[in-house]
Design a protein around this nucleic acid. Structure first.
Lengths: 149, 149
DNA sequence: ATGAGTGCAAAGTATTTGCACGTAC
DNA sequence: GTACGTGCAAATACTTTGCACTCAT
């Protein structure tokens, strides 16, 4: 599956925190652990419950919000879409950049990778003198299953 | 600029409403008018104020929310991004599909069109048996001006 | 020891909704 | 005249924040 050394990632995160003069706390490391083991798209509420369910050290909703934001900055997590009012995130450390097909009927999310699209994007940015830091491509429609029914 | 006959668009919208057995009201037509003349990215709050500022018939925030949703369904408006908690829309009737470069520093939005990317997207959808209805590509980064400063 | 981190409850904010009244048909 | 549309205020629902306490350094 994911070719990622979780221990190494945690060490990097600790360094990231130290560099920002922030503290390496149990809640922060625990959350990175739990998000990595959840290993798919998640929303804050799910994460709060997931943590509560598999550990005897729950983390408060506020801290989850604060830490997810931090992990986003660190680069281990990214925002996928805002669906209704909720934000859906994904754990991305160790996996290549990818985009999404989102089924409007069943909500399924299919990931795909396209180097050609990535490279066209770079051409476009060059043309505008724009420095890309991040991007997001989502295609909304109907997945195979939902088309038949 | 925009090659669009506003009167024709309004007629189409009226037909759209009748087909849905909805009423053709002053608020609905007025809003289409105002959005067309605003002619750039907008948020609900801006639209409410814009309408209030240039007409003696303001439209309530609730009706704006309801009507924008309707115009989205009709196809004259589309959601661009959710920024913070707000949703940013754009008027799209009469203009070709395009995507966005969003400057993270100043908030500027640059539009671009790429047929190559569109066609690669179709290839990907075919591969997954996915029927695309709609898509959204945003590249976040720094615009030319914000890189220098 | 000290200040940053955490949990809680309260506040905030974009959006939605119930209801009484107005208006298109 | 009837039912749908509108405006208002209240309700929602996700997210943020102030504050007192706890913990990493």
């Amino acid at each position: 599956m994911r070719k990622l050394n979780l221990e190494a990632l945690k060490k990097e995160f600790e360094q990231f925190l130290r560099k920002k003069k922030m503290k390496v706390t149990r809640a922060r490391l625990d959350l990175l652990d739990h998000i990595a083991s959840y290993d798919r798209h998640f929303e804050i509420e799910e994460l709060v419950n997931w943590v509560a369910s598999r550990s005897d050290r729950p983390v408060s909703r506020s801290t989850v919000y604060r830490t997810v934001k931090l992990l986003e900055e660190f680069g281990a997590v990214r925002e996928v879409i805002k669906k209704d009012k909720k934000t859906i995130y994904e754990f991305v450390a160790g996996s290549p950049h990818h985009d999404h097909l989102v089924c409007l009927n069943c909500g399924k999310i299919i990931e795909f990778v396209s180097d050609e699209i990535e490279s066209l994007q770079h051409q476009i940015c060059n043309h505008y003198g724009f420095k890309p830091l991040n991007h997001r491509l989502e295609i909304y429609g109907l997945c195979r299953d939902c088309q038949s029914s």
